[in-house]
Write a protein that binds this DNA or RNA. Structure first.
Lengths: 145, 145
DNA sequence: TGCGATTAAATCGTATGCGATTGACTTAGG
DNA sequence: CCTAAGTCAATCGCATACGATTTAATCGCA
């Protein structure tokens, strides 16, 4: 009879464990800045486009309000961003980097390059892998409206 | 000046979000069995090799005792496995599936195939992606002794 | 043999993630 | 204009993850 797959043979586990390895490779780069990995993603997203709404940010980072709300509150408490209600629609929360947040984003700007170096992959390989993973992700879990 | 990368352009985010998408694709397959995804990995590992020590299991799943201990206690409480000390070395915990655990593992045996179908990838693509990710993981975070 | 170094697991604290629910606000339709 | 339906963020509960520390047991080596 056929042996069932064990985790090391499974694609799901390869993805799961690779994601954790990436996380642990980022940690020493971000910890000196006082950032966690998801916080870094938020910072990078807002640095590129400030004044995003929580819904928009959540859609691009694929996070729900139950994850984002406490995460953003911690970043607000750290003084990196402000959370305010949209005057035109009081349900929506608008996020803006503070000066400290923008400064931090600049200090973190080199992190992806440092990470790319750790992977040992060349830019083409990185781009290809990224695109394959994005296709897989979108197939498994389409982005929201 | 060069625009800093935003999350959708980053390999790390592609990996992070793809892993979460995989997790969410597994959930509806495992939830009817009462299993979480990491619990499923433990079950699959023990089904292939029963009587593993916690250290060995942690090395193959890349999890530390601080994660495994409560996870295994929950599985023990569910009646799927037993945790006992190694008579030859009282520091080590030995894990064994119960009959209920083995039955559950059989019921879960088809889950990877159902997942593979969801990905829309063919077996070769799955194998290639898995191997690339394993290389990346091992480069970023070498397995323990 | 005996004690310091090492190892294994457990514990503690913090930060995600997500399902389900709640509450406040806005919109749509009559 | 006014209510029913929809939307958005917040809250609650639970389950990972992991750094740091603690405790218990074993090993190494003089």
């Amino acid at each position: 009879m056929l042996m069932a797959l064990t985790p090391p043979d499974m694609l799901c586990f390869a993805l799961h464990s690779a994601a954790q390895a990436v996380h642990s490779a980022y940690t020493p780069l971000l910890e000196p800045l006082g950032l966690t990995y998801p916080q870094y993603l938020v910072l990078a997203s807002l640095a590129a486009e400030d004044g995003q709404g929580m819904g928009q940010l959540g859609a691009s980072l694929r996070l729900e309000s139950n994850t984002l709300t406490p995460l953003l509150k911690r970043m607000q408490a750290a003084g990196w961003l402000t959370r305010s209600r949209d005057p035109a629609d009081d349900r929506k929360v608008v996020l803006r980097l503070t000066d400290a947040g923008r400064t931090l984003a600049q200090r973190a700007a080199d992190v992806p390059r440092a990470f790319a170096e750790k992977t040992g992959l060349n830019p083409d390989q990185i781009r290809d892998l990224r695109d394959v993973l994005a296709v897989l992700r979108n197939r498994l879990k389409p982005a929201k409206a």
